[in-house]
Design a protein around this nucleic acid. Structure first.
Lengths: 139, 139
DNA sequence: GCTTGACTTAGAGCGCGCTCAAAGCCGTAG
DNA sequence: CTACGGCTTTGAGCGCGCTCTAAGTCAAGC
């Protein structure tokens, strides 16, 4: 598989695939006799795993640590597991934060919904609700 | 309240507070007679709201749009509501992605746990499980 | 009076994760 | 044979969100 094909199948650009190889996130790919990368389809699983790490907010430098351990073989199993478990905890924390923010956002949106219905027909905005008409922000 | 106090209470640095004012995320703060910013405590609510938008991944340029609308007064209520509702949908989508990634991560971690227990005592790794010993990544 | 430290400004610099540019090579279609 | 597209490399550039520097002002404490 050439880099253009892998780009299509992985959803990453060829630029990004080369960049990932350069920094060590992807293994050095075999080159054909004209020097072009020739990928094995199995690389897609690794890329998919990287994508999940990225989605969950892992910085590239940590992915590199993982990739390096993986390259170092079986004796790094425990270390790799530990890295993933730590990451998982961070993800869970972040997820909880996000959910709290989402609930807050829902409240605010509910306020906008209510305010809209009474627009120009009721001046008494509910003071115990989420307010949002403050002094010149961004002015 | 001076900028140092607000920094402590908001969790943002004084540098960041000034930066936010410069770009228009925070309203231009009143200055005392020696030119120093003197904040009203109510600014904390706005900062908290910004923090939630940021946590949920809203780029600064969109927060600026919101801040501008808020500054423009009541006639932007509908627009502001729409912006927040769109944002909420993106957050929900992202949340679902994250949860899927987390489940995947849990599986992988479970694999590491199992592999550890049988380490050097069982060569037959479960092929139908999450594998993780691939050709020289990062090498 | 003098030091200390928090504040002011405009603007430069940084870390991250790409993204693209330049110059050149290779192989296949017409 | 030639033109074309897709690949190669190294290294520069970019958008984001801060973060810090430099040079200077001001107010309070010793």
């Amino acid at each position: 598989m050439k880099i253009g094909d892998l780009a299509k199948r992985s959803g990453l650009s060829a630029h990004t695939l080369r960049y990932y190889e350069r920094i060590g996130l992807l293994p050095y790919a075999d080159r054909d006799r004209s020097g072009q990368r020739d990928y094995d389809a199995s690389i897609l699983e690794w890329i998919e795993f990287l994508r999940r790490l990225k989605t969950t907010g892992m910085p590239i430098r940590d992915m590199l640590r993982y990739a390096q351990m993986r390259a170092d073989g079986d004796e790094t199993f425990a270390e790799r597991g530990a890295l993933l478990r730590e990451h998982r905890e961070r993800v869970r924390t972040h997820l909880a934060d996000l959910e709290a923010c989402l609930r807050s956002l829902d409240k605010k949106i509910a306020f906008y919904g209510k305010a809209k219905q009474r627009k120009d027909a009721d001046d008494g905005l509910p003071k115990n609700d989420d307010e949002d008409t403050a002094p010149r922000p961004g002015a």
